[in-house]
Every structure is written in C-alpha cells, then in structure tokens.
C-alpha cells in the first residue's frame, strides 16, 4: 500500500508512543525512519528488522564512554541508532556551536543511515558535517559516508549507504561524525583521516527519491502497516458510553 509522509509520521509516532517513548523521542524517531525511507535509504526495512527483534523499550540509553574536549564517544552496545542517538547528536552540535568543531563516535552501533536526516538539519543550522561508518572491531575500508555542506540541506551520500539490503542486516559499526562551522575545516578533517572514500555515482538520487515519494506516496507493506497500527493501538482508549459523550461532531 501507499501512504503519505504525514500519515507515516503519525503512525510511527503513535507506535513509538505505544512502546513507551516520550513525545519528543517519538517525533525524532518517526522523522528518522520517514526521512530515510523517502530518500531511498531503506528506513522501513530497518524498522521491519527492529520490529522483528522487538522494538527496544525507552530504557535503552547510551553511556558516555569518553568525553574528551570536543570529542565524544558513546557506547551503543550493539543497539540501533534509532534509539536515543538524537541526544548524542545534540551534545555534538552544542560542542560544535561553542568550540567551532566537534567529533562524535557511536561505538558498536547499528543503522547509521538513520542519523543522516540530522546532517540535513545541522546544515540548515549553519554547520557542515561528515559522517562515516567502519565495521566494529575492524580496520576495513570505509564504504559508507555522507557529507553535508552548510545551508545546503541535502547531504551527499555515497553509494554504500544507498539502496542495498545491507542496511536491513544486523551488522555493527562504529559511526564517526565530524561537525564544524566551516567547510574548509571539514576538508581538513577528511584529508587527515587514513581512509579512502568511495565515489558517489549519482548524488541527485536521494533528492529524486524524496520527490517521487512525496508525489506518489511511500510504499509500505501491509504487514508492517498492520504491525505499526497494532503497536500504536496501545495508546488508544477503549470506547465506553461515558467516553462517547465526550465525542465531538
């Protein structure tokens, strides 16, 4: 079935609320999934995997592993960045705003694609950003990265992040995010790193994906839709004679 963006966000928010998340978290999480899906980054495939695992309760929080100057390290303990990553990102943004740059590492995490919508937000807030993933406990070549310039809004995302089934897999990564208030700083940071970046084949693709989703709707499997509505139904209150009196027109 096809659903609208508003409809998907609404149903996701209600489902996360049904899992016990506070309304601020529900909004963030719903936006993360929707943004990723609409831009072709398989947000709903990630969600489907998370549903099959049982969506984590709100108690899942990251521990600050290291806080060294403007470098933050969080231990995600193998959990998805859907849960609570916004708090770490907020701290990185705050550090960058006060010091001009900051670095954030989520160790042992999954679903790095879900933080890419934040690059867009940061860009519109005047920050340039770069994010990459490397396999947890491995020095393999970096094959997933994204970069967003200041005030551009749409990140450039490498092919490794786009349209493969790998995102629905349960692999664990270290996600490294670098934020700064000038594009030159960002280039300097990237050039200092000891990894090669795979090229972007088509950086218009994510914009096209978004426009197509907006124009024609977002495809959601009936199974996932039913499941989200079922989880969300936990926030609904049974109808009684008294409650019917409280019904409006």
């Amino acid at each position: 079935m096809k659903v609208s963006k508003n409809e998907l966000i609404y149903v996701l928010k209600q489902a996360f609320e049904g899992c016990g998340y506070d309304f601020g978290a529900c909004q963030n999480m719903a936006e993360q999934i929707t943004w990723s899906e609409m831009h072709g980054l398989r947000g709903l495939a990630i969600l489907e995997r998370l549903i099959s695992e049982g969506i984590s309760a709100p108690s899942t929080e990251f521990d600050i592993h290291t806080l060294d100057g403007n470098e933050l390290r969080f231990d995600a303990s193998g959990s998805s960045l859907l849960y609570q990553s916004d708090l770490g990102l907020s701290l990185a943004i705050a550090n960058c705003k006060s010091a001009g740059s900051s670095k954030l590492v989520f160790e042992n995490c999954r679903d790095g694609a879900l933080v890419l919508n934040k690059l867009s937000e940061m860009s519109l807030n005047g920050l340039a950003s770069f994010v990459c993933e490397k396999e947890f406990n491995s020095d393999k070549k970096i094959n997933r990265w994204a970069r967003c310039e200041q005030l551009v809004g749409v990140p450039k995302i490498c092919d490794g992040f786009m349209g493969t089934d790998k995102f629905a897999e349960a692999k664990r990564f270290d996600l490294i995010l670098y934020l700064c208030s000038s594009g030159g700083e960002l280039d300097k940071f990237i050039s200092q790193q000891a990894f090669e970046l795979e090229l972007i084949k088509n950086d218009d693709e994510i914009v096209t994906n978004y426009q197509t989703s907006l124009a024609h709707g977002i495809a959601v499997s009936d199974k996932v839709w039913r499941c989200l509505n079922k989880i969300g139904s936990k926030v609904l209150v049974e109808s009684t004679e008294a409650s019917r009196k409280g019904a409006g027109a």
Partner: peptide
C-alpha cells in the same frame, strides 16, 4: 485521549473515566 473509535480525540474526566495513563501530551 485518543479513542479506539476512529482514533478521534476525546476529553475525559480523570477521576471518573479510564485512559488517563494514555493521555495525549
């Protein structure tokens, strides 16, 4: 709160009706 009937918003009396644990923010 949101009623299970068409998911419409309703207003309940906290002391007399069920559902305050699912209050809308």
């Amino acid at each position: 709160y949101r009623s299970e009937e068409k998911m419409e918003p309703r207003l309940g009396e906290r002391a007399n009706e069920p559902g305050a644990d699912r209050e809308m923010p």
